[in-house]
Computed example of a mutant assay.
Amino acid sequence: MKFKQNLLLIITTFFMLMSVESQAGRQGISFYYGLGLGAVAPTDFDVSATGDLMFGIEEDGWALELIGYGSVEAGSNNSAVDYSVSGNHIGLAYRTIEKDGQWYKFKVSGTDMDFDLSNTTTDTVTSGNSYTFGWGMRMNREARLEIDYSYYKSDDLADAVHMATVRYFWGGSEYQGSSY
């Protein structure tokens, strides 16, 4: 792993330990999992549809999220720019306090993103950081919906990659508001 990824892992571990130590009396550790659909928009390429799987470990607003994703091949009139993308995010997320069934999310992730270009036999493998801002809402006691925007920057790419995703997930913290 690169130095930046090691540093991100150390910081993530530190924040998780701080959260468990300081706030464990308010909410225990919980797990969640989900599915997502979205779009990835690298500069100089067409937009491609993505699908992803998510698993998270959450405690009082802090979460360690693991997300794997893949896209369909984006086609254009020029086969030299047809591509598909796959990869993963491992990051530390923070969700604000849920108010009226809604919240905001901020996340920093170590990200691996691989581009499979149709005009070459090798993949372009990249590694960098993603910065995510999201909005979420509770669908029912056990289910939540989040809409995320991610900005991916890597030293391996000249320009940033933008991603937008809608995720539906189950589990996690119990709802503390009125009953459904």
Rank of each mutant, 00 (worst) to 15 (best):
G38W: 01
L145Y: 02
F106L: 15
G110L: 03
G61Q: 06
G101A: 12
G56S: 10
M137N: 09
N6C: 10
H162G: 03
M16E: 05
G128N: 03
S86M: 09
Q27H: 14
D156A: 07
Q23V: 10
H162F: 06
R26G: 10
S179V: 10
G36T: 07
T124L: 15
N88I: 07
T126Y: 08
Q5V: 12
G61P: 05
K4I: 12
A164H: 05
Q5S: 14
S76E: 08
E142T: 09
E142I: 08
Y69G: 01
G36L: 02
Y83P: 01
G68Y: 12
Y94M: 02
Q23A: 11
S84T: 11
E21H: 08
I57D: 03
D114Y: 05
F169A: 00
E59V: 08
G136P: 02
E73F: 08
L53T: 10
L35P: 07
E146G: 00
Y168P: 01
F106A: 13
M137T: 14
A158Q: 14
D114C: 03
Y83A: 00
G91K: 00
F55E: 04
D112N: 14
G75W: 04
G25L: 13
D116E: 10
L66Y: 14
N78S: 12
Q102K: 15
I11T: 13
K99W: 11
V40D: 02
G177K: 02
